[in-house]
Computed example of a mutant assay.
Amino acid sequence: MQKERVKELLESALNENPSLFLIDFEINNNNQILVVIDGDKGVSVNDCIEVSRKIEHNLDRDEEDFSLEVTSAGVSTPLRLPRQFKKNVGRKLTVKTEKETIEGKLEEAGEETILLKWKAREPKPVGKGKVTVKKEAALSYNDIVEAKVMITF
């Protein structure tokens, strides 16, 4: 399977719907093509079908047998791209770095960093008991080991 040809078809399909973007793409040894997409406004089943058709209808099964799977990034899929963080501003995330794990609300997502805010209970500076403090952390995308949206019911 020619990976470059499939990639060209995939890029062409995504260019037709600019709100969609690629998360992952691979072709395994059995000519199984796996594509994972996301969208600024989410991904519908029809979006997956359209991308699938653009690829499948331009490849010749008589030349080479293949299977094709186009899926959307699921809720449990870690965020990877700044574009994914931007579409999740306002939601609660669990973000792991080399040093710590932070659960907080994603307040901002720029080109290089994100800003998380949360409240924590800490001992009072003087006396007994605890006090609620507002905390925040600006993290570089390079420092993020894993980030997931927290699902609340």
Rank of each mutant, 00 (worst) to 15 (best):
M1I: 08
K3C: 14
R5H: 12
R5I: 13
R5N: 14
V6C: 06
E8L: 13
L10R: 02
L10H: 02
S12D: 11
S12L: 15
A13L: 04
A13F: 03
A13H: 02
N15P: 04
N15A: 13
E16G: 11
P18C: 01
S19R: 12
S19T: 12
F21H: 08
L22D: 02
L22N: 03
L22P: 02
I23V: 13
I23N: 13
D24N: 12
D24P: 02
F25W: 08
E26T: 13
I27W: 07
N29W: 10
N30Y: 14
N30A: 15
N31T: 07
Q32H: 14
I33R: 02
L34D: 12
L34K: 12
V35K: 01
I37E: 08
I37D: 06
G39W: 02
D40P: 01
G42M: 01
G42R: 00
S44L: 10
V45D: 07
V45L: 14
N46H: 11
D47F: 00
D47T: 01
I49G: 02
I49T: 09
I49D: 06
V51C: 00
V51T: 00
S52L: 03
I55R: 05
I55W: 05
E56R: 10
E56N: 15
D60I: 04
D60G: 03
D60K: 06
D62I: 06
D62S: 11
D62T: 09
E64A: 11
D65K: 12
D65T: 14
F66G: 00
S67D: 05
S67P: 01
L68N: 00
E69N: 04
E69V: 02
V70A: 04
A73H: 03
G74Q: 13
V75H: 09
V75E: 14
S76Q: 09
T77K: 13
P78E: 09
R80C: 12
L81C: 12
L81I: 10
P82T: 04
R83L: 09
R83H: 07
Q84N: 03
K86S: 07
K92M: 11
L93P: 04
T94C: 10
V95G: 09
K96A: 14
K96Q: 12
E98R: 14
K99V: 00
I102N: 01
E103Y: 08
G104H: 05
L106C: 07
E107A: 10
E108S: 05
E108Y: 06
G110M: 13
G110N: 11
G110Y: 11
E111G: 09
I114M: 04
L115A: 14
L116W: 00
L116I: 00
K117R: 15
R121D: 13
R121G: 06
E122N: 05
P123T: 01
K124Y: 01
K124I: 01
P125L: 08
V126Q: 12
V126R: 13
G127P: 01
K128P: 00
K128G: 07
G129F: 00
K130D: 04
K130W: 02
V131E: 11
V131S: 05
T132L: 10
V133R: 10
V133G: 05
V133P: 05
E136H: 10
A137F: 07
S140H: 13
S140W: 11
Y141C: 05
D143A: 11
I144E: 03
V145L: 12
K148E: 15
V149W: 07
T152W: 14
